[in-house]
Amino acid sequence: MLKELLNDDRGDVPGWVLVTIMTAGLVVGLWAVAGPRLAALFTAAMDAVVGQL
């Protein structure tokens, strides 16, 4: 009984590894596309705040 329970989870680790790698790849891809735009947006917002002081 215990041996059967231990053998049932053998396929879960590669699936979770794949999901993690795919998520990391998606984040890196989105960051590469949106990063410069977000940096420009942040700089413009900080310039507006600093300009009001």
Rank of each mutant, 00 (worst) to 15 (best):
M1K: 10
L2V: 04
L2F: 04
L2S: 07
K3A: 15
K3C: 08
K3F: 10
E4G: 02
L5S: 11
L5E: 13
L5V: 10
L5K: 10
L6D: 08
L6P: 00
N7D: 13
N7M: 13
D8K: 15
D9M: 06
D9K: 04
R10H: 09
R10V: 11
R10Q: 11
G11Y: 06
G11F: 08
D12L: 14
D12G: 04
D12H: 03
D12W: 05
V13M: 07
P14E: 07
G15P: 00
W16P: 02
W16M: 12
W16R: 13
V17I: 15
V17H: 05
L18Y: 01
V19E: 04
V19L: 09
V19G: 01
I21H: 02
I21Y: 06
I21M: 10
I21W: 06
M22G: 14
T23K: 05
T23A: 13
T23I: 00
T23Y: 05
T23V: 02
T23C: 04
A24Q: 10
A24T: 12
A24G: 13
A24E: 05
A24M: 15
G25H: 06
G25V: 06
G25E: 02
L26S: 14
L26P: 00
L26M: 14
L26E: 06
V27Y: 05
V27G: 03
V28Q: 05
V28N: 02
G29E: 01
G29C: 03
G29H: 00
L30H: 08
L30Q: 11
W31E: 00
W31Y: 08
A32Q: 12
A34D: 08
A34T: 10
A34W: 03
A34G: 06
A34Q: 12
G35E: 04
G35D: 00
G35I: 00
R37I: 06
R37W: 03
R37Q: 10
L38S: 01
L38F: 10
L38W: 07
L38C: 05
L38H: 01
L38I: 12
L38G: 01
L38R: 02
A39Q: 13
A39P: 00
A39S: 09
A39W: 08
A40M: 10
A40L: 09
L41W: 14
L41K: 13
L41V: 13
T43R: 15
T43H: 14
T43L: 15
A44Q: 12
A44P: 04
A44V: 06
M46N: 04
M46C: 03
M46W: 09
M46Q: 07
D47W: 05
A48L: 10
A48T: 10
A48V: 08
A48E: 09
V49F: 11
V49R: 10
V50R: 00
V50G: 00
V50M: 01
G51Y: 01
G51F: 02
Q52F: 14
Q52R: 15
Q52N: 14
Q52D: 15
L53D: 08
L53C: 11
